[in-house]
Design a protein around this nucleic acid. Sequence first.
DNA 1: CGATAATAATTATGTGAAATAACTAATAGG
DNA 2: CCTATTAGTTATTTCACATAATTATTATCG
Lengths: 156, 156
Amino acid sequence: MTNPEKSPVPPAVIDDSTLRLFIGYHMKRAFNVVQADLTQTLKPFDLRMLTYTALVLVVDNPGLSQSQLADAMGIERPNLVVILDELEHRELIVRDRAPTDRRAYALKATLAGRRLYDKAVAAVITHENRLLASIDDATRSILIKALSEVREHQTT
Amino acid sequence: MTNPEKSPVPPAVIDDSTLRLFIGYHMKRAFNVVQADLTQTLKPFDLRMLTYTALVLVVDNPGLSQSQLADAMGIERPNLVVILDELEHRELIVRDRAPTDRRAYALKATLAGRRLYDKAVAAVITHENRLLASIDDATRSILIKALSEVREHQTT
DNA sequence: CGATAATAATTATGTGAAATAACTAATAGG
DNA sequence: CCTATTAGTTATTTCACATAATTATTATCG
């Protein structure tokens, strides 16, 4: 008689069927791939995901404050400090003083920052299109819409 | 004459239209919501995402080794050690010796581990259904299929 | 057969992304 | 004007993840 309790055979291939029931599992696995690709794509520009995101938002929103930027990025203000320090030391952005509030900074991209933005954004678009090559436009729209709807459940 | 270079008006609402061009941005924002919900859902069971994932895979794959589990979870072997230590100390899993290889462990869930698995899996399913309430079944299938296709670009 | 390579798990250690608490400077509101 | 709030910073912590090195065991190959 068999006794699976005492000596289970080491499975040759791992069954993740339970985990595949969960959308979070699929999202994490897929995002890992996208993030790995993004990291490689940004490496030639000496940008990480966070410095890239901050640069894009500063270029697109000249004059915003650090609090606004941290809020838009979904991180806490203290964590933004080092990110902006890096971008500022590389002279990609400047911390101007806000005209109406001497506590706040008005963040602005420099010309070099805008040029790096142009190149990095183009590179990321190219790389993402490669990752999405097998997915047609209609499906991409559905994907983005579904992800947006999930995001709308944000409680914080 | 206006001079937008010198005193940009602090934008009232932040423009993330460039970032919304990127599927990675949508995936990260959506996953953040799912993960926050998952963390809350697992808290009553004293499980984190990683301990939960490990428990599920051990229950579904009795007898697998730590190397196999680390590979399935996409983490390095050293990082799995503390995760399994925690599950073992709580007597949710055991590290049996593998019958064919005295270096390896044959991981198995205990009865308590399987019971916690049942409750936690049910809770996570309920919570995910809430997050996906506005998304019909056909769209969910498309979403999962698209995420799976992105994942298939895994290079590592 | 025996030396060497490879593998399983562990320990020690480091890094990067997040959070919180506490502080300074400046503004806002009763 | 005095108090509370806000903007930014510093210090510190936690967690997820990685690498290097070590021990024990197994596999390979000359």
